[in-house]
């Protein structure tokens, strides 16, 4: 493999930077089940990194390790060149890592606007006294946060449902709102667990466009899990392939597509 310490240039001419996140020899067990077995890989600044693999391969588990929901028995997580101590999910979020969930985790009782607003919680710094008395600082902050949220609502083209309680939305729109909430945190690294699962072709195209724009316009680094091979090949710069908790491939879409181990893992496995 070529030396990439200084980053690389993608075929479409985007400049990818140095390593942002590095997973070193991660092993994660649930009782007797080994969900992740000694896996190492990295995610680079500005990159769209995909994790693929058959059902139960351990993809979500890997995302959960990165976001602090699961804690591996072995291995190290390095972020921005520093080894990360064991962290709770909220601490990871505060470090600038936002995520969505495979099974959608939204605040069902809140409106779309309020859901996305929660993504701004870490940008609300004024004290409770400032807020109670509505002093300048609290007011300014609220205005800024609202502006940011409106920007995201426009970007995701969901103006028409801004006041709708999320519980009433169809699946595809919920996925979009969840992305909006993650974007509101303006994270350095965005983790998406099957952002297009269960969507129709049109919705998938919209979501792909959003992901590309987020990466391109905001320069956000993205790691995503996806089942649809076509989508993965179109979107991602580099792909990690997992099977039964092991890493069986890592490289550009073209490289993994021609990798025999990957082809074998996918033969006879049904995909949607």
């Amino acid at each position: 493999m070529k030396d990439m310490t200084e980053g690389y240039t993608t075929p479409d001419g985007r400049q990818i930077g140095g390593v942002m996140m590095e997973m070193k020899n991660i092993t994660l067990r649930f009782g007797g089940v080994v969900a992740i077995k000694d896996i190492s890989f990295d995610i680079r600044e500005g990159e769209i990194r995909a994790i693929i693999g058959p059902n139960g391969a351990g993809k979500s588990s890997m995302l959960n390790v990165i976001s602090g929901f699961y804690h591996p028995q072995e291995g190290e997580v390095w972020f921005h060149g520093k080894k990360r101590p064991t962290m709770r999910p909220y601490q990871v979020a505060r470090q600038g890592i936002a995520r969505t969930f495979q099974n959608i985790a939204l605040f069902e009782g809140m409106s779309v606007l309020d859901n996305i607003m929660t993504g701004r919680l870490n940008y609300m710094k004024s004290t409770i006294l400032d807020q109670a008395l509505w002093w300048g600082k609290a007011e300014r902050e609220e205005t800024e946060n609202r502006a940011k949220v409106e920007e995201i609502i426009d970007f995701l083209e969901i103006q028409s449902i801004r006041k709708t309680p999320v519980g009433r939305l169809p699946y595809g729109l919920k996925k979009r709102v969840e992305l909006g909430r993650a974007l509101a945190a303006q994270p350095k690294l965005l983790l998406l667990d099957e952002p297009m699962a269960g969507m129709n072709v049109e919705e998938k195209e919209d979501m792909s466009r959003f992901i590309l724009d987020v990466n391109d316009e905001f320069g956000m680094t993205i790691a995503l899990i996806e089942h649809d091979m076509g989508v993965v090949m179109d979107l991602s710069d580099r792909v990690v392939v997992m099977d039964y908790g092991k890493k069986i491939g890592d490289g550009t879409p073209d490289e993994v597509r021609s990798n025999q181990a990957v082809i074998d893992a996918y033969l006879g496995v049904s995909h949607d």
Binding site: F101, L106, N122
Partner: peptide, 17 residues
């Protein structure tokens, strides 16, 4: 807001910090 978020969904609340 954080309180309402936690009352609604723990996982989601954690993910927004």
């Amino acid at each position: 807001r954080a309180l309402r978020a936690v009352a609604d969904d723990h996982q989601a609340a954690l993910s927004v910090g």
